[in-house]
């Protein structure tokens, strides 16, 4: 039985890494078509760096991820804090509202946002589909994830700590600044990291909220896949895989150190 379980584990892991290995291997393959190995080359990486549009797409992706993560981390953390500290009439409704973006299919959220932005544009002339609308869309689902991660950190917090701070003369803000925030900071960072990767990875919401000139890397990859892939995409994918791997390992090491 344990040996069978071990075999199962190795097979599933192989299944999980097969596609990644294939992409990385092809990114170094000389052959332009097919999967036959014809020799090692860096040329696809070099071509990628000369493909100036890709840099713009990467920049767009990062702009969206950084901006939306900043907004969502602040709003989500405050939201979790308010829900933790106070009880009020609409609390149940707001809690439910937080779960919605996590659980409804992203296509539903994507088309609803598309409708909303079109409606706002018709009535006010604002919000042309652009990087701004992508950021607005991303923040909407990121808030939920940040709030839930921070909330689980708050749930592990001894309520007596906040009371102790007040007892020692700290008002609401000082209590937050000197006691609550330092204690939930790992949760806030973890939430921000999650929000950031969700934004980098998002395709569906971006697909529905992007306009001309706001192409992000996932949109570009999607377009390439639909048109027929060039090996530069393999190189790009490999770079992204390496970047997220390094980011994730570093992030975990950082979080563990705290």
């Amino acid at each position: 039985m344990p040996r069978l379980l071990k075999l199962h584990t190795y097979l599933v892991l192989a299944f999980l890494y097969l596609p990644i290995a294939v992409i990385v291997a092809l990114s170094f393959n000389q052959s332009r078509f097919g999967v036959r190995w014809t020799g090692f080359t860096w040329q696809w990486y070099l071509r990628l760096f000369h493909h100036h549009r890709v840099a713009v797409y990467a920049e767009n992706t990062l702009i969206v991820a950084v901006a939306s993560t900043l907004i969502a981390t602040v709003l989500g953390t405050l939201l979790a804090l308010g829900l933790y500290r106070y009880s009020f009439r609409l609390k149940g409704a707001i809690r439910f509202l937080i779960y919605v973006p996590v659980v409804i299919p992203d296509i539903v959220m994507g088309v609803a946002l598309l409708l909303f932005f079109a409606w706002v544009r018709v009535h006010t002339g604002w919000l042309r589909l652009s990087l701004t609308t992508i950021v607005l869309g991303h923040v909407t689902f990121q808030i939920a994830y940040v709030a839930l991660v921070v909330r689980s950190r708050l749930a592990g917090l001894d309520p007596a700590l906040e009371e102790a701070a007040q007892d020692l003369g700290a008002g609401s803000y000082a209590t937050f600044r000197h006691v609550t925030l330092p204690l939930i900071l790992p949760g806030v960072l973890a939430g921000a990291l999650l929000a950031f990767t969700l934004s980098l990875d998002d395709f569906v919401i971006t697909f529905f909220t992007a306009g001309p000139g706001s192409t992000t890397l996932p949109l570009y990859i999607f377009g390439s896949v639909k048109r027929g892939v060039t090996p530069e995409i393999h190189a790009l994918s490999s770079i992204l895989i390496a970047a997220t791997t390094v980011g994730l390992v570093l992030g975990r090491a950082l979080l563990r150190r705290r």
Partner: peptide
């Protein structure tokens, strides 16, 4: 007034 809390509530950080 000041309080000595049941489980001390020392600030862990």
């Amino acid at each position: 007034v000041n309080t000595v809390f049941q489980n001390y509530a020392l600030f862990p950080h």
